[in-house]
Design a protein around this nucleic acid. Sequence first.
DNA 1: GCAAGGTC
Length: 701
Amino acid sequence: MYKHSDRVDMELLGSHKTRATKVSIWALTGPVLVIAEKPKAARKIAEALSHKLITRKYGKIPYFEIRSSPLVVYVASTAGHLYTLHTELKGYPVFEYKWVPAHVVEEEKKYTRQYLELLSKLARECKYYVNACDYDIEGSVIGYLVIKFHGDENRAFRAKFSSLVHDELKKSFESLAPLDYDMVESGLCRHELDWIWGINVSRALMSAIYQATGKKVILSAGRVQTPTLKYVADREIERGLFTPLPQYTIKVKLKKAGIDFTAEFTENPVPEADRASRIKSSVLREKHLVVSDYTVERREISPLPPFNLSDLQYEASRILGFSPMKTQKIAEELYLEALISYPRTNSQKLPPSLNYREILHKLSDIYKYGALVSQLLRETKGILRPVEGEKEDPAHPAIYPTGNTPRNLTRDQWALYDLIVRRFIAVFAPKAVISYTRATLVAPLTSYRFTCSGITVEYPGWLAYYPFHAPSSKTIPHLTRGERVEILSVIVRESYTKPPPKLKKVDILKWMESVEVGTEATRAPIIEKLFERKYLENTKSGVKITDLGLGVVEVITGFFPELTSVDLTRAFEKLVNEVKTGVKKREHVIEEAKSVLKRLMEGFNKHISDIGVLLSSRLGIVDNYPKCSVPGCRREIYVNTLCRYHYEAYKKLREAYNEWSRRKNTSYEEYLRKLKEMNSTGALIRDVIEHFELKALREKQ
DNA sequence: GCAAGGTC
């Protein structure tokens, strides 16, 4: 490490805990190492610092040298976290851990070794250090640990910027802040809390199975994955217990000027069969309906905002059928090919400094976008003002195409790239104009009301560029208030209530985003992790939870209930923020977490053999316990001869008959037979019907 | 081997 004895410099810096003045990088008197969070950021930073930069390579990794005599500045980068928390200790609870280079302990992070070697080498040659990672708590930790282990905290600064725009970068390096210890401490605190909870509960689960069977099975639990698993479990149970109920929709067929159209009863669906048929016959007695209201509303619909990663994942799932992980992977590939901007962003805003015109111009050279771009420039008369969304990201703008020409893209890469380009073009386009026609018609004697509606795209605007939200048009005849319309017929259709739809991966992602667990970059991988653990599995129609997944949720709900709720994330956020603002010390927060975990572990350990049997039985690796009497169900008995889920189904099936028979006159046996033949009947309910209720009826006869 | 968080 650089040995310094320069008095002037120490006066300039003061003690690191107290100094508060901003320092220009150009006022420093020795070699400087600037640490960026990723290679692309390093290049942008180097370009902002000087026109005369020398690009060098360490192995395959580029770094930059700026000679501004007498100063030398090196700009190099990490590749995200180069350090990770680690322990040598086996068993649990475990509270001793330290920061170690990720490449040493994690096989799939081998590639980070060269990044660390380069930073270490440059750090030895330098006297000053600038943490220029993304300005958020993770960036603060990433840069800090490199400085701590390879540089010198006492001669270190923080560069603060919220975009990689030339002028902003330049300014931030002309007024470097002291190292941001508050952010670092809160970041370290977040890492430790996640580690303590995640590692310990995971080890406890694995240990339970090992003690019960001698088998090593990889299980896991964590602040993000466990509430997510619980969400899928709850949905799956709800579907499994779903008991469809009959309901009735009433429509009238109408005729005006030779055109047939249909109006819907405003109180649809009607629960009771007899009420529906009474309404039908009384409406039939009236020969016509009277128009009570007819409105045409023209609405201007703004373009959708530019993509952040989750919006891209939703749209790619809906339009292209891509899983969130697939979308993320392809977006990262496009980013590395310099075809799109940084994809792991939450922002729905484009930087005002971006040269929209230049990007559009470059896009128009890509054969399929030429026509779209010239249409856009015509329609907007060249005034390019993008629509923005609400969501922001401290470190990155929304996703946009760079305008570089794609070469040798795969079909999937093209499809995603096309979506991104179209969405980008559409944000500049005019609003769409859509007219909604709505009529209300009243039966004169009974006052029953019916409605019908039409929709027409008057002017496509942005929908011409991004057509995936264009409504399909539907027309109804023009009507006048007070007008009589002839009734052709009245139709009553019997249908059944619908279960909540089966989840797809993207629905899980949406839920995670809505409750704010995980981050842009981690949600899709964490969903995949639940599959890897065999907690979830894929079926043709969507995601299904396994018996193991249900068992893990039951055990964690019983012994570590905090971990099944997104409230733990909220609690962490509060603590991490209190550390950031200096209200609490990291050490105290961690001590508190340890004592909570210790107490919970004692409760777990008291029941570890039962837990081990439960998890092992769900895995199918033990068999010597009393099982639920539903054939094929390997869950342990909960009440009488049934597991907890089949017992719930048994109760639900009987309860639902009351409501069913109120709606429609049906014998219990008919009810059972009808439920059995319907696809929407929950699997648990179906099991109980097939194996108990129908069997019992047959035996009675 | 286990988390969640960065990024190749």
